[in-house]
Design a binder for these strands. Structure first.
Lengths: 102, 102
DNA sequence: TATATATTTCAATAAGCATTGAAATGGGAG
DNA sequence: CTCCCATTTCAATGCTTATTGAAATATATA
């Protein structure tokens, strides 16, 4: 994974509303959640939620698919794995104090 | 690890100069590196490097110790482990696509 | 077509972060 | 004590991100 992509992903996660959105979408698994439901869940306005969802989406951490009037968002677990792999392998050179996390 | 601390750490890592500083300090291990050497290594001015070092230090990702006129910085591997553990365990609920990183 | 629902986009404002160079601090050597 | 070296702090500027509410887009239903 390129450093640039890692920085975009870390920046996307480094915000409380977005981190909560991501954690919520993890719990929803493959079912995902509609933008409106996410908005209610994290207590943010529709436009603010939409903005944060596009930030997460631009960073590749979530995917969007339209289902009728709703847009369903799901976590991209492979992308999450990639950035963690970058931090553990490339950045921390597999130091045991870091790899002990898994 | 508290969500607030995780956000500070992710935000600290989400910047190219700081990510390069951290990767460099990983390679220096327990020997660490002086602020001036880090500055040369990443090609940033002294004041800019100092600013980034204090951001990383405030986030708990590195430690500083004075050695005569120089200040030596070292990676806090335990802290790196903690934020990765948060992402893998708490956020991603140990999803296999994520835990496969280690 | 008209209407309602779901979501995004836009413009404006506010807040925070990055960068620069100059000045200040802290420590060692003559 | 004075000078020098290493680093940090400060003030000013520009850039990016966050937030808000209103308007626009897309889809479904009557």
């Amino acid at each position: 994974m390129k450093e640039e992509a890692v920085i975009a992903a870390l920046g996307a996660l480094a915000q409380d509303t977005r981190l909560r959105i991501l954690c919520y979408l993890v719990t929803m698994g493959s079912a995902g959640a509609a933008a409106g439901d996410i908005s209610k869940e994290v207590g943010a306005s529709a436009s603010r939620t939409s903005f944060h969802l596009s930030t997460l989406s631009d960073a590749g951490l979530i995917n969007a698919t339209r289902a009728s009037r709703s847009i369903i968002y799901r976590v991209n677990f492979e992308a999450m794995g990639s950035i963690i792999r970058y931090l553990v392998h490339d950045c921390c050179k597999n130091d045991p104090r870091v790899t002990s996390c898994c």
